[in-house]
Design a binder for these strands. Structure first.
Lengths: 238, 238
DNA sequence: CAGTGGTCTAGACCACGCA
DNA sequence: GCGTGGTCTAGACCACTGA
């Protein structure tokens, strides 16, 4: 682990155990550089990490301060980018299952061509899966994946995790993803598989996943039961 | 503007106008340093910016490459952190209005105390506003703000923009915000003010806004008409 | 093994906050 | 004007890729 990350980790510990407490000013960068036997540039990089993580803020000419809400963020070690995700309103010990409703290969429609940056003659996998948590269905996935980007998807793979297959078996590295979230009315499939009543809303998530190289490799629309899933995220300041 | 930002901006231009095209390798950092009459460290910082912005990716030992989907991001100049927001499914020329339904001062309930990090004796403003776009109501805000953090809110301020008041009049700097998004059934207020039918879903956004210092200054729950608002965001890779 | 990106240093100068 | 953070440099060493 590079030194600037180590230093950031050490300072994070100090914030967590109140060595540097909320609203307090940290020692100046020169002092920190001396204490950690490093250069000021390295200290600056460490503090930048902590700033991005939402633990501290700096005022040029004044100093570096611990944020009022730092302790909320200080628990886990430094991980940025992982700040968005689905939260199921359920405990951990519950069993997660998948049931494949549909699995075939076809050509993409226009929207899929555009989102996946492929032409109309590029074959895609198309599958629908029902996700079940503790015996209760909670979301219905509808996914399209270009065959030439992620080859070798089988019903076996779908029973487990597709992402684990991509990362583990194929050794492919993920990149960004773009999502759009809406509220929607349930369609016939939702009523059938998610046991939605006529007036139960759906949380719809439309998503495009990219590889590190910027190649889109998955376009999906997922319908979630409104009473089992919510999405949370953090907006960084600019 | 610092040099590393200028360099980043110049490289972004080159990607945009195809001087460096998709999937292509950029010149190595030493060459770039020479060309821009700067040091390699500065080039590295510029490339880091572009990486964060999703335009390029690097492979140690190999080089820096333009992402396949770089052009989508290359249009606007470099702005990170602004990647999450509400999108109204409407054009620009339409008029935006606010109608204040309720405005008073009271003490916070338990949830509000916790979210705003205040105790039960700290007075808060509480207001509800209907947002109207081109004559059509599209969202209903329910907002709580501690009086001692943002003093001087009036009905006049509510008619305009509260954020403009905070930033402009009070000169206070915003920081992060945390949001949770859900689908929900409409309540009586929604039916009255948003003209929701019984089976029209609601997109509910619960949000806490923080100052740069980490002090929470606003806790809100906003109900959006499902057919007028969606939320989009980008997840960075880690 | 040559080329490339990732990290680190010591020292310098600038911009800003604050008294 | 002093103390602080923000930027920049030249040079060095290391880690990794790929021929």
């Amino acid at each position: 682990m590079p030194k600037y990350k180590k230093v950031a980790e050490l300072i994070r510990e100090r914030i967590k155990d109140n060595t540097y407490s909320v609203d307090e000013k940290l020692p100046d960068q020169n002092s920190l550089a001396e204490e950690f036997s490093t250069s000021r540039v390295t200290i600056k990089r460490a503090l930048d990490l902590l700033t991005t993580a939402g633990l501290v803020y700096t005022i040029q000419g004044s100093g570096t301060y611990v944020k009022r809400n730092a302790l909320l963020q200080a628990q886990s070690s430094i991980q940025i980018g992982h700040n968005v995700g689905l939260t199921t309103a359920v405990r951990d010990e519950v069993e997660l299952q998948s049931k494949t409703i549909k699995f075939n290969v076809r050509f993409p429609d226009e929207k899929e061509q555009q989102q996946l940056m492929i032409d109309k003659d590029t074959p895609v996998y198309h599958y629908q899966r029902l996700r079940i948590l503790g015996g209760k269905p909670y979301s219905l996935e509808n996914t399209v994946v270009p065959v030439h980007t992620i080859p070798g998807i089988t019903e076996e793979v779908l029973k487990d995790s597709v992402y684990r297959y991509i990362r583990g078996e194929l050794g492919i590295i993920f990149g960004d993803n773009r999502q759009i979230v809406r509220a929607a009315k349930p369609n016939e499939l939702d009523k059938t598989y998610l046991a939605c009543k006529e007036d139960d809303p759906i949380l719809e998530v439309e998503k495009v996943m990219f590889l590190k190289t910027g190649t889109p490799f998955e376009y999906s629309k997922v319908h979630h039961r409104f009473d089992m899933v919510e999405m949370s995220f953090i907006n960084q300041d600019s």
